[in-house]
């Protein structure tokens, strides 16, 4: 197994700041923004973006989390006990500009499932997607509004996002099979 670090701690931090700026620039009514992190690594990313929005634009935006375990359509292919973290959206979504946040955008299935969860909570004004890494290979017509870094990958390559809160360090690492 080979690996190559694509983002270190510093570059990852800068990427989050840039994403936060883009979110504010794109949305003219930042007061309507609500952040929803997708378990697991989307949640600490969302938390950091929430902090950035506060220091950049002095706005407090609500933060929720979604767990898509119950919405996954590949459930019956897995044998392990699902690790359920829970969905927590302690505010109304009606009329909100929801920014859905995840670490890696790949097939798009996770995002589709997350949007299903959001639909069960109310009718958002719009839903936008922010991801730290887009590695391609979509299986659904889903596109991110905010992308930290595009990393086109080949078969056998895998992108790992490490986040301090979960993995004890910040980094984006590309790994691949073979020599």
């Amino acid at each position: 197994m080979n690996q190559k670090q694509l983002l270190d701690e510093k570059r990852l931090g800068q990427t989050i700041i840039r994403l936060s700026h883009e979110i504010i620039e794109k949305n003219t009514t930042p007061g309507d923004i609500a952040l929803i992190g997708i378990h697991r690594r989307g949640v600490p990313l969302a938390k950091r973006i929430q902090n950035q929005l506060k220091s950049i634009a002095q706005i407090d935006v609500p933060l929720g989390t979604v767990d898509i375990t119950f919405h996954r359509d590949d459930f019956r292919e897995r044998l392990v006990m699902p690790q359920i973290k829970g969905t927590e959206i302690p505010f109304s979504l009606d009329g909100k500009i929801v920014i859905l946040i995840d670490d890696v955008l790949f097939t798009g299935r996770t995002i589709r499932a997350a949007m299903d969860v959001l639909n069960a909570f109310g009718r958002a004004a719009s839903i936008q997607l922010a991801v730290l890494v887009d590695r391609g290979h979509r299986e659904m017509p889903i596109r991110a509004d905010f992308v930290g870094k595009n990393i086109p990958t080949h078969e056998g390559e895998h992108v790992s996002v490490l986040i301090q809160e979960v993995d004890k360090k910040d980094a984006v690492i590309l790994t691949w099979d073979g020599e």
Partner: peptide, 20 residues
């Protein structure tokens, strides 16, 4: 029981349905 508590959250949603 742990999983059931997660479903309790689903039952509190306006749309109390998941496609599992």
């Amino acid at each position: 029981i742990d999983t059931a508590f997660q479903f309790r959250e689903v039952l509190d949603r306006p749309i109390k349905k998941v496609p599992s």
